[in-house]
Write a protein that binds this DNA or RNA. Sequence first.
RNA 1: GGUCUCGUGGUGUAGUGGUUAACAUGCCAGUCUGUCACACUGGAGAUCGCGGGUUCAAGUCCCGUCGAGACCGCCA
Length: 588
Amino acid sequence: MAKILRNYKNNQLRLSNVGEVVNLVGWTSKIRNLGGLIFIDLRDRFGITQIVCKPENKYYSVMSNIHNEYVLSIEGIVLERESKNANLPTGDVEVEVTKCAILSEAVQTPLIIADKTDALEDVRMKYRYLDLRRPVMQKNLILRHNITKATRKVLDSLDFIEIETPIFGKSTPEGARDYVVPSRIHPGKFYALPQSPQIYKQLLMVSGMERYYQIARCFRDEDLRADRQMEFTQIDLEMSFVDEDDVFEVIENMLKMILKDVMNLDLITPLPRLSFDESMEKYGNDKPDTRFGLELKNITNIANNMDFVVFKEAIQNGGIVKAINIKNGASKYSRKHIDEFTEQIKKFKAKGLAWFKYDNAGISGGISKFVDEKTFFELKKYLNIEENDLILIVADKKNIVNQSLAYLRNYFGRDMELIDENKYNFLWIVDWPSFEYNEEENRYVAAHHPFTMPKDEWKDKLLTDPGKCYSKCYDIVLNGYELGSGSIRIHEQSVQKDMFKAIGLTDEEAQEKFGFFLDAFKYGTPPHGGIALGLDRLAMLFTHSTSIRDVIAFPKTANAMCPMSEAPSYIDDYQLKELKIVFEKEKE
RNA sequence: GGUCUCGUGGUGUAGUGGUUAACAUGCCAGUCUGUCACACUGGAGAUCGCGGGUUCAAGUCCCGUCGAGACCGCCA
């Protein structure tokens, strides 16, 4: 085949090119055949150029037999259009065909190749290669590329080096479920795919690399969600000789650069910081969307003085009472709506949703008959209750109250249109508790991971008062999503020993579980810490996608399958034999 | 593991237990020389996811199953 000529992309031609002979390639995006006059929108990754062909043209019969998605190579002359299209960068010109070669024909596509396809996601997944022809999807992947490009640029300028760590590793005893790969050479043994390069990046600090980063693929065998895939990508980094503020500064600089390069937005730094406890109190979760207010208010004290048995019981059982005030919600939401909200929060095990409305006639509905004048006076002041407000109250165990109201807060943020979609509200959640108490196992477990450095003032109190310990752990949150998580790590062996003791691990058990990792720390370990940011989530939020699947070229469905390739699949018996894997026959 | 929603031409939807399953878009053909969501005319295209049941009669009701999605659990 002759060399395919192409001297312009389909977004390039302007009035200044009029008269030039140009060579274009692309897919047939749209045909408008007016009988005596054929227009073809020729699409490539960069844009669309209108091709025109008149009846006297010797390629007229060729052109009139072209169908959608045919791949064409066009030679033509750039002309000024008689009627221009202001919606298209190339809308002032068109290319009159002088030569046309059909490089490839196409049958009818199962989905329409346009930004607004009418296909649902399973069809799009099955024909992902066609879905990815849609300009909006190409834009998403290009934006993702721009994020990694900016990331590499800024981290390189800050002396970070990109180092690849193994995909085949050793199964880690804690954390998410591992994906495992059988070893043929060592029958019965398995490699584990990394949940994150955590172990390796810390070892690289022991190695003296000082500043490492990686655009790292991570694997977790847990159920999928709109914002969670079985394999996902993290911007993973680790630094030596640093404390929390140093990590924040690097990430803030990096995000500033990414936002500028990718979105042309100026990020104001330093980013706001919120303690974990404060976040739970005000927003009910550890990843607040701060683009709107609607904060949770703790009314336990006021509720305790009310003559309402539901509140009293909840408080007596160690629970709390919190409220949100939906401004102008009284007239918008009917009793039926409120019943639906109640139904929704049952998934968090909330037993009910107390509510009342306020207007100039006073309070009404829900629990209003339990709200006496004095109580209302206090609530009105504390919750800033005004005309037409709807007050929603949950009384239960602390985490049920927080989960329920955090859910409702996000719902009303959207439903009352309180969210400015053009805002990117990054913030740090800092000062995390070191431990969570696991009631099932009756012991403390590491809230982050057992290598997280406690705050200086708690370093020597891990054993005496673990429940109150805070650690040098931080999350970065964007618009209600956990974007990244990191910590300063323990580099002192005495602190590490206390940490293991606090979570009930003996020296022998710790050695057995984390052996080579702990050994490495004996040979001179710099203070170090790091963070990992979810690239998929960042790209999802920048593109205003509703799922990370829209910024991943070939994602899996919620059921961890690929409708296109039909992975996962059974393998041949000889492969199983070679791996010495035997399945037990299913018993009925 | 659990809860909920959905499954009807290529695609997206409508469809009171009762005629030939409707509409939009896409596709095919025809008319048309300035369209750009071209317009107009005509046409093809559906074993209503699959299996069973109730019924004189099932796209519609029931049970099961498979598939898709959202959420809970899970994700140190």
